Computed example of a mutant assay.
Amino acid sequence: MITNEFWLDRWKTGRIGFHQEGVNPKLIEFWPVLPKGSRVLVPLCGKSNDMIWLAEQGYEVTGVELSSLAVIQFLGDNDLAFSTHQDGNLKVHTVDGLPLRIVEGDYFEFNENNFDACYDRAAMVAMPDSKRSDYVTHTLERLSPSATVLLVSLEYDGDKQGPPFSVTEQSVVDLWGSEIQKIASENLAQTNPSYKEQGHSIFKESVWRIHPE
Rank of each mutant, 00 (worst) to 15 (best):
A81Y: 08
P193D: 03
S206Q: 03
G105I: 05
K91I: 11
C45N: 02
Y107S: 05
V64I: 11
G177S: 10
S166T: 12
D106P: 05
I28E: 12
I16T: 15
E169L: 08
F108K: 07
E109W: 06
Q73F: 08
M1C: 10
E179P: 03
F30M: 06
E56P: 01
F6G: 05
D116C: 07
E112C: 12
E112A: 15
P212E: 10
T137R: 12
F203I: 01
G17A: 15
A184I: 04
T84A: 15
L8F: 06
H93I: 04
L44N: 00
P35C: 08
L90I: 04
G14D: 07
R132G: 02
L34G: 02
E213D: 12
R132H: 06
P193M: 06
Q57R: 15
W11E: 00
R15S: 15
D129T: 10
R142P: 02
T148D: 09
Q73Y: 10
A147L: 08
K26V: 08
Y156D: 04
V92Q: 04
L27N: 05
V64E: 01
I180M: 12
D87E: 14
Q181E: 14
I202G: 01
D129K: 09
Q190S: 14
G22R: 08
P212Y: 13
R10C: 05
E29T: 11
V95P: 00
S171I: 06
P164C: 10
P193C: 07
V149W: 02
R39D: 00
N4S: 14
S201T: 14
P35S: 14
G105L: 05
K131Y: 09
Q170P: 06
E104Q: 14
L100D: 02
K36W: 10
T148W: 10
P163R: 04
